[in-house]
């Protein structure tokens, strides 16, 4: 039997992480399923585990002038109900899993799981979200796009814990998330798309585009976005085919039991096209 640690506060938790070799479990909605063994048997974890869902300090959502801070143990449902959280993220969460799962699953867990199909990652990349990590040695912040390094790979030391997800406050003229799943709820994405822009006097001040489930991690290309900034919206709309071409090479989906690469690629690019064409 593996050893389970159930710290009740952050200090206790960091101490465990520093002293022991453990896997972190938050809501457990990924960890339990991935390590499932059999009915009436304990979860088949391969190492000791540390359950963090009882750490009250990590259940807060608050803001300052520039950021919204989401404690890493907040449930998805709590995040969806908070007034501080950007609509784009809330709309995304509403399309994730089901009420029962959202009551226990966490945002940090979706990040920690680092699945190419992790839905929240798409708006979080788009919003330039940061991850706050903490260990007994101290605290640091990294951009989410640096934190996730590959399929199920994250930049986290064994003694570190994600303590917050930090979202810059940005205002957009419009933001949009589209999940394409095999059915309308309670399903893993075949692909997903998020787009947002800010217009001032018809000039594009900011534009952001992100794709999920079509590469090892979320596809977001700041270099391509920058090419559009400063142009008028009509100029950008006229460039639509060109823009679609730019992104083409970065959309590299796979075939699996949920869909095929032709569909994933083609629809991703269609959603991009439709997003650009509908800039208003």
């Amino acid at each position: 039997m593996v050893t389970s640690y159930i710290p009740l506060n952050l200090d206790e938790c960091l101490k465990i992480l520093s002293d022991k070799q453990v896997r972190i479990v938050a809501g457990g909605t990924d960890m339990l399923i991935q390590n499932r063994s059999h009915t009436s048997m304990p979860i088949g974890f391969k190492s000791d585990v540390c359950y963090i869902s009882n750490i009250e300090e990590l259940k807060k959502i608050y803001e300052d002038e520039t950021f919204v801070y989401i404690g890493s143990v907040c449930s998805l449902e709590a995040i969806m109900e908070s007034e501080l959280v950007p609509e784009l993220l809330k709309n995304t969460i509403l399309e994730m899993a089901s009420p029962a799962i959202r009551h226990t699953a966490t945002l940090a867990g979706n990040i920690g799981n680092a699945s190419p199909a992790g839905d929240s990652l798409v708006p979080l990349y788009l919003l330039d979200a940061l991850v706050e990590k903490r260990s007994i040695k101290g605290v640091s912040k990294v951009a989410l796009s640096d934190f996730i390094t590959g399929v199920r790979k994250i930049d986290l030391e064994k003694d570190e814990l994600i303590t917050k997800v930090i979202i810059p406050k940005i205002s957009f003229t419009k933001s949009y998330f589209k999940k394409v799943g095999p059915r309308l709820s309670d399903a893993i994405s075949k692909l997903s798309f998020a787009g947002a822009y800010k217009l001032e006097n018809d000039l594009v001040k900011d534009i952001r585009i992100a794709f999920g489930s079509v590469n090892v991690t979320v596809v977001r290309r700041r270099d391509l976005e920058e090419r559009l900034i400063g142009k008028t919206k009509d100029e950008v709309k006229k460039m639509v085919s060109e823009i679609v071409d730019w992104y083409e090479e970065f959309i590299k989906p796979i075939d699996d039991q949920r869909s095929n690469k032709e569909y994933r690629k083609s629809i991703s690019l269609k959603l991009l096209r439709s997003f650009i064409e509908n800039i208003e």
Partner: peptide, 15 residues
Amino acid sequence: EIVNSCSVPLANVLN
């Protein structure tokens, strides 16, 4: 609140 008890470890039920 509704949760799926097959996906909740007992540890998370504490208190």
